[in-house]
Every structure is written in C-alpha cells, then in structure tokens.
Computed example of a mutant assay.
Amino acid sequence: MSQIQTRAADACDHALEPYVDQLARDGWCIMPDALTAQHITRLDEDLAEGFDQAPYCNGPFYGETTKRLGRLPLRSVHSEALICHARILEIVQQFLGRWCDHVQLNTTQAIAIDPGAPAQAPHRDQDMFHGPKGELEYLLNVIWPLTPFHPDNGATRLWPGSHGYAAIEGSEVREEQAVAPVLAPGSALLFLGSTLHGAGANRSGSVRRAVVIGYSLGWLKPYENPWLAYPPLIARHFSPELAKLAGYVQHRPNLGNFEGQCPSTLLTAGPELMTGPRDALLPEQAEMVEAYCRAQQVPG
C-alpha cells in the first residue's frame, strides 16, 4: 500500500471505511445499491437512441464490436446523480485530494459491448499520463452497470493488488488471477487508475451496457476536453458542482484561467464584464510573495 493510500484510509469517514480499505488493499471495491435500479433504468432509456445511432469503434483496444458515447450530461439529466454522487466523491477526494486543489471529470462515457466481443487487453488508465507512478494516484474510475454484469457477458475483469507500486514492477499478467465481479444496476464498481483491468469477452446473446465516470487530478489534461464538450452556453445550465467538475473552476495557481480569472465567471457573465486578472496562489506562494514585498519595504 502506498503512503497516499494509507492516508486515505486513515482520513475517511467511518461509513466509507470499508470501501476505502478495499480500494487501498485491492485497488477496487463495490458499493452496492449506490443508486436505485429505477434511476439507472431511466438513464439507460435516455441513452438508447444514442447507442442506436452510434458507429462501432475502430481498433482492437476500443473494440470493433463496441459502441461508446461521451458527453453524458448532454444526453441525460439522470447522469448527474452518478457524476455528483456524494459518497463516491468523498472517496475520490480521499485518494486524489492530497495532490490537487480539486478533482475534475476525466470522462463520462457510456459503453455497449455486443455479443461475440473479445476480451479487452488488460491495461491501466493512468498510463495515459506520462508521469511518475506508484506514490500518487492520477485517477479513480467508477463503472455503473446499465445491464447486469456477469463473467459471461463481458463483466469488467480486475487484477487485485495490481495497483500502486505494483503497477511499476512489471509482473506477468496472468488471466487466472483476474476477478470479474457480478454487478446489478444501481451498484457501482470503483477502481484506481493504477489498477490493471479490462472488459471481458461477451459470450452471451445480449449487449452488455455500462457507464464509466472517471475523476482525475484537477491539474491534469483530462481524457475528454471539457470546454469543447460543455461550452459556456451549455455549462451555465449545470449545477455549480457539475460545472466545477466539468472544468469551470480555476486550479491554483491560476491554472485553467480565462483572462486571469476563474472560468466560472463565463457562466454568470461574459468577457465584456471581466475585471483585471487576479492572484490565485497556493499558500506557500502567497507567503513567498508577501515576504518579498515586506522585504522591499524595509529601509536600506
């Protein structure tokens, strides 16, 4: 277990301790009945037209018998309950919060895997970021099944203990060590960005559908470009929490600003009402600047 995972387990609310403990130990956990099955059904119904119209993916990784939909807040109002789930966001904060001012959406994606689809190559989602691995986590993903998950219909396979420092040890991937949890709609599968995983083969006669909500450190470039996916005219209709997760917040010091200000200004006003750029420094930076200004005032 890495130091950040140990701290996460120590700091967690007692009701969430079992989930944080398993995430820290195994790299994944299941939160049963996180939402009602009825809510998931309504979301699935909203996504049905998009799946019908979507083309299949290209390439063996995305899956040529797989369909993927992004920008879920535009496709269904029911997606916000998944994205802004309070207990899950608290767990996300425990694992990612030490390394950033705030977390952000890395992706909102719905996935449909057709019968006959082969298993996906095992991978770690953190590998999209070219940075040091082991001590910190870049991502935490949540899979919400829209249809029941079981080993025969392509349930996500996970390799327990493959996360954290184990991700840089280069151990052999052995299929028999993978687990494919059985999940019902309404449950949530959480796993770290360093956890080895992959979709299973769909050997059933029906499509396996799911939603993936991914969260990442707020200073990273996310998988889905939020300002193209949700421009200001769209995002101004979001709740404040959803807008913040979708990138309309400034990450200290001044990362992601618009004309030197927090981009959330664009949701309530326009560029013509902007004032001059303003500081948004980290505490140690503000202290350094203040100390320098005081020193300049000392008579020579």
Rank of each mutant, 00 (worst) to 15 (best):
S2E: 08
S2I: 02
A8M: 00
A8Y: 02
D13C: 08
D26Y: 00
A34H: 09
I40L: 13
D44E: 13
A48S: 15
D52M: 03
D52K: 08
C57K: 09
N58M: 07
P60K: 07
G63W: 11
R68W: 00
G70M: 03
R71I: 08
L72M: 02
L74F: 07
R75I: 08
S76T: 12
V77S: 11
H78R: 15
H78Q: 15
L82P: 14
H85W: 12
R87Q: 12
L89R: 09
G97M: 11
W99E: 14
T107I: 05
A119Y: 02
A119P: 06
A119R: 10
D125I: 08
D127I: 04
M128F: 05
W144P: 02
A155T: 05
R157H: 12
G161E: 06
S162G: 08
S171L: 12
Q177S: 05
V179W: 00
P181D: 03
V182S: 09
L183Q: 03
A184T: 12
S187E: 12
L189E: 04
G205K: 01
R208P: 11
W219T: 10
L220H: 13
Y223W: 07
L228V: 13
A229M: 00
P231V: 10
H237M: 06
F238W: 15
E241Q: 14
L242W: 09
A246S: 14
A246H: 05
A246Y: 05
P253D: 03
P253K: 00
G256H: 08
F258V: 15
E259T: 06
C262F: 10
S264V: 13
L266D: 09
A269L: 14
M274E: 11
T275E: 15
P277Q: 12
P283E: 01
Q285V: 00
R294P: 12
